[in-house]
């Protein structure tokens, strides 16, 4: 027979509503916050206009008139245009969502967050996932516009091209974060937008690279959109995945990822 020691009288029963003072799970990362973040980006008319409406509109005015024309392998040119514009839509979407940290830093929200248990890495993870969700939506909307307008390709092309466009836009989520931590400005997209358009041009998203002068074609291979564009169109053109394209994506993902991480660490360091 054992005797239990007397339990201390001063348990917490005197304050039954004593708050739970444990640390939050996952550094404060919460799916419910993602929902609010998504609602925010979908409420932003400017974001919607540039990521969902404009690329779809571009397809209707630049893609549709080429209906009936085919690529070398017999696939429709409209699909080529559609996939290119899906890449463009996704990169604008992820850049603007990542770049939102600039706004939040300018407004002082990131300082407010430092007074909560939210860990900076959980904050960045939320921004990244929000960016990728918006990027996925951008790809899906562009594909829906294409499908509704009569683009027909095998299922695996839809799937692989869509996945490549979407996953490739991770490079631009990192780019958005990089710029977001570089400049605290309330409307960072005002000056990133034109930069993205130029990069998209060099990535062959608006016109095929083959129509550019040879020098520009060579330069284009080293710009950040080139790899994503090539990889996304590969399932359609059947041209295969070139090492140059893969290396391009890996290089720029690394550059922007490391850049964003360094600036992020500088931002969260104490003064």
């Amino acid at each position: 027979m054992t005797t239990l020691p007397a339990t201390p009288a001063a348990t917490r029963t005197d304050r039954p509503d004593e708050p739970d003072r444990r640390l939050p799970a996952l550094g404060g990362f919460a799916p419910a916050v993602l929902r609010i973040e998504l609602r925010r980006v979908l409420r932003n008319r400017r974001t919607l206009a540039f990521t969902l409406i404009m690329p779809g509109f571009f397809f209707l005015i630049f893609g549709l008139p080429q209906g009936g024309q085919t690529l070398d392998n017999g696939r429709p040119v409209t699909a080529y245009v559609m996939i290119s514009l899906a890449v463009y839509a996704a990169m604008v979407a992820t850049t603007s969502a990542g770049g939102a940290v600039a706004t939040e830093r300018a407004l002082g929200w990131s300082r407010q967050l430092r007074l909560t248990p939210l860990r900076p890495t959980a904050y960045v993870a939320t921004k990244l996932i929000t960016a990728m969700a918006l990027g996925l939506l951008a790809v899906v909307v562009e594909f829906l516009v294409g499908a509704a307008a009569g683009v027909r390709v095998p299922a695996y092309v839809w799937l692989l091209a869509g996945l490549a466009a979407w996953l490739g836009s991770l490079v631009f989520a990192a780019f958005g974060l990089f710029v977001g931590y570089l400049v605290p400005a309330e409307n960072v997209m005002q000056f990133i937008g034109p930069i993205l358009a130029v990069l998209a041009m060099f990535g062959g998203l608006f016109v095929p690279l083959e129509v550019l002068p040879d020098v520009l074609q060579q330069v284009a291979k080293f710009t950040p959109v080139y790899g994503v564009g090539e990889l996304s169109r590969a399932p359609l053109t059947g041209a295969g995945v070139s090492m140059a394209a893969v290396a391009n994506v890996a290089f720029w993902a690394l550059v922007f990822g490391v850049g964003a991480a360094r600036l992020f660490r500088r931002d969260t360091a104490r003064v």
Binding site: P19, D20, R21, R22, L23, P24, A25, G28, A30, A32, V33, I36, R39, R40, R43, N44, E104, L107, G108, W109, R111, Q112, L113, L115, T116, P117, L118
Partner: peptide, 27 residues
């Protein structure tokens, strides 16, 4: 803390701001 310089997100509603911040805590 309530600070002078802590900012708020202008595009959230008052209720959303509280809900969102609440999710960062355990309780």
């Amino acid at each position: 803390a309530v600070l002078q310089t802590g900012g708020l997100l202008k595009d959230l509603t008052v209720g959303e701001t509280v809900q969102m911040t609440g999710h960062f805590y355990r309780h």
